[in-house]
């Protein structure tokens, strides 16, 4: 579904990503592990068209993605739920969700259906529909962020550290929801530092260090790997 070949990304003279090659298969739940500053967000923002690769190729369902503008990327079916959520804080929860449907704004019927599906995933958002998104708790804001991304009808959903700053119980629910989204047919690319919880729901995983991919494997291989356990799971 998604293929990266030898992708480099620079911020000025600083090379944030070098020689990234990876594959995401349709239907998978691929986890990208890496410490703070490894380059996970840079990779996601490059896929979203917010950064430009300085070298390499990005291909999504057979079409070249590099150089596309963010709105074209969303229309093509790749949607990011970004680190820090990037909600519209003074808009209501409902408005935030509907902004997610922006690229499908002419299909009102479809959006209504989609909204119901999203509210089924996050029933609490129905109660909070008229509240400003900025007034919600961290966990609920994360639900709005994922819900908004789902309103864009992604075929590939990128989630950048959705568990960041949330209470353990909320994190557990969050990962269950992510698995549910995946099992309902959306391919997921998930960046996380919370390695154990993420690997438990993964089909495949990559490990990133200092802008490079240093390891990859399926769930069992990663969970069983000594280095991964030492570095990310602490056991």
């Amino acid at each position: 579904m998604l293929q990266l070949k030898n992708v480099d990304v620079c911020y000025g003279s600083f090379k944030a990503l070098s020689n990234i090659s990876m594959t995401v298969d349709t239907g998978g739940l691929v986890v990208l592990l890496g410490a703070n500053g490894a380059g996970k967000s840079t990779l996601f923002n490059t896929l979203s068209g917010l950064n430009r690769p300085t070298a390499g190729d990005i291909e999504f369902e057979g079409t070249r993605l590099n150089g596309l503008k963010p709105n074209a990327v969303v229309s093509s079916g790749i949607v990011q739920c970004a680190e820090g959520r990037k909600l519209f804080p003074q808009m209501s929860v409902h408005q935030n969700l509907m902004m997610g449907a922006y690229v499908h704004r002419r299909d009102r019927q479809g959006n209504k259906r989609r909204l119901n599906e999203v509210l089924e995933l996050f029933p609490i958002l129905e109660e909070k529909a008229e509240q400003p998104a900025g007034s919600l708790s961290g966990g609920q804001q994360q639900m709005v962020a994922i819900g908004r991304a789902m309103m864009s009808r992604p075929r590939l959903l990128m989630l950048d550290e959705p568990s960041l700053g949330l209470a353990p119980l909320v994190v557990k629910q969050m990962f269950e929801t992510i698995q549910q989204i995946n099992s309902l047919g959306t391919t997921v690319l998930l960046a996380e530092q919370n390695a154990f919880a993420a690997l438990k729901i993964a089909t495949h995983a990559y490990v990133m260090e200092n802008g490079q991919l240093v390891m990859e494997g399926d769930r069992e291989a990663m969970l069983g790997n000594e280095d991964v356990r030492k570095a990310y799971i602490g056991a």
Partner: peptide, 17 residues
């Protein structure tokens, strides 16, 4: 709403297309 969205969160506006 796209104008308001852009004012409230620029990156968020890009990410919804």
């Amino acid at each position: 709403a796209t104008i308001i969205a852009m004012a409230q969160n620029r990156d968020g506006a890009f990410l919804v297309g």
